[in-house]
Computed example of a mutant assay.
Amino acid sequence: MHDLLARTPEAPEALLARLDAAARRIETPCGDGTMVWRMWGEGEPLVLLHGGSGSWRHWVRNVEALAAQRLVVCPDLPGLGESAMPHPAENPGPVAAEVRAGIGQVLGEGTRYDLCGFSFGALLSGHIAAQAGEELRSLTLVGAGALGLPRQVTELVKVRTVEGEARIAAHRHNLASLMFADPAGIDPLALVIQEWNTQHARFRSRGFASTTSLKDAVAKARAPVALLYGERDAIAWPEVELRFVALREVQPEAWTGIIPGAGHWVAYEAAAAFNAMLLDMLARRIGA
C-alpha cells in the first residue's frame, strides 16, 4: 500500500480540499469584515502565521504532522486569503493587534499558546509578542526580515497581466527566485498554492522588510524567542549568521537554527526537517 501511494500522490486540489474540510473554521472581526481561522488537532495551541501574499496554504505540509501533537491554529492574515483588509495602519503594530485579538477570541482570553510566524507572519508575530502578556509561551520566527540588515535584490515578475503557460512560468520564476533553494522542488502543489494566494492577496507587506520593525518589536518580547532559516533563504543568504547576531542584540538568550539546503519557504521545501526542528525547539524551550 505504501508503494502504491508513493506512485499515486494526492492531487493538489484534492489535498487542499481535504485539509480544508478537516479544519474547524472560525471567523473573528477584522477591519470592516472578518478574519478566517482554521484549526486542526487537539492539545496545546500552536498558532502559525503565514507569509506575505500568502494564506494558511503556506503550512500545507506542516498542519497534519504538527496536529498529531498540538492544536494547530492557522488564520488567513488580514488582507490575504479569505480575510478582510485590516483597518488602515502605517506600521505593523495595529495589524498585529487585530490578529492578537483574534487569537484571544479563537482560543479564549488568557489561554496560553506558542506562536510561529513565517516571513511577514514573523514580523506580525514579533509585534504580537511585544504586546502579549503571560498567554504567549514562546515565539518562533521563520525566514524573518525587518531586522535592520540589507538583503539581496530578488527579481520577481508580475503575473497579474499574463495567462496560461506564461503565468505558470512566471509563478515558477518567482518561486525559484524567492521561495525555493532548489527549483526542482517546485511541484504542482506549490504552483497551485502560489496561484491561489496571488489571486487573493490584497495587503502589500514587502515595504516592511527593509526596516528594523521586527527587531524593535521583538526587543519587547517577554516570551522565549527562536529564529530559524533555511540555509539558502533568499532574504538572508549569504549572511544568515548576521541575522542571528542582530536578534541576540535584543534577545541574548534567543535560540537559532538552520535547515541545510532549504530556501525561504523552508516549511514547505524541507517540511519533515522543519516539523521536527519546530517540535524539538518547542519541547526544549517550554517542555511541550
Rank of each mutant, 00 (worst) to 15 (best):
E82H: 08
R70Q: 05
Q69G: 15
A68W: 07
H87R: 15
V72G: 00
V95W: 07
G93C: 08
A101G: 08
R70G: 03
E64V: 00
A89E: 01
S83C: 02
V99Q: 02
L66A: 09
A65K: 14
A97H: 10
E98Q: 13
A97Y: 07
V73N: 06
P94A: 06
P94T: 04
A101C: 12
V72T: 01
V99P: 04
E82S: 12
A65L: 12
E64N: 03
A89P: 06
N62W: 14
R61D: 12
P86W: 00
A97P: 08
R61C: 15
N62R: 15
P78E: 01
S83K: 04
V99G: 05
P78M: 02
P88M: 09
A101Q: 08
E98L: 12
V95D: 03
A67G: 13
A89G: 05
A89R: 03
P75H: 11
V95R: 08
P88S: 07
L71Q: 05
R61S: 14
L77R: 01
A65H: 14
G81K: 13
A97E: 13
L77W: 02
R70Y: 07
P94E: 02
N62S: 14
P92Q: 03
E98K: 14
A97D: 05
P75K: 06
L77E: 05
S83N: 04
C74L: 10
G81P: 07
N62Q: 12
E98T: 15
R61A: 14
E90T: 12
P88L: 08
E98G: 14
C74P: 09
V95G: 00
P75L: 09
H87P: 15
P75Y: 07
H87L: 13
R100N: 13
A67D: 08
A96R: 02
N91C: 10
G81V: 07
V73D: 03
V99S: 05
A68M: 09
D76H: 11
G79P: 03
P88Y: 10
L80P: 13
P92M: 03
A101T: 04
C74R: 09
P94K: 09
L77M: 02
L77V: 00
C74N: 11
A96P: 00
R70K: 09
A68Y: 11
A96H: 02
P86C: 01
P92I: 03
V63L: 12
P94W: 05
A84K: 01
E90P: 11
A84R: 01
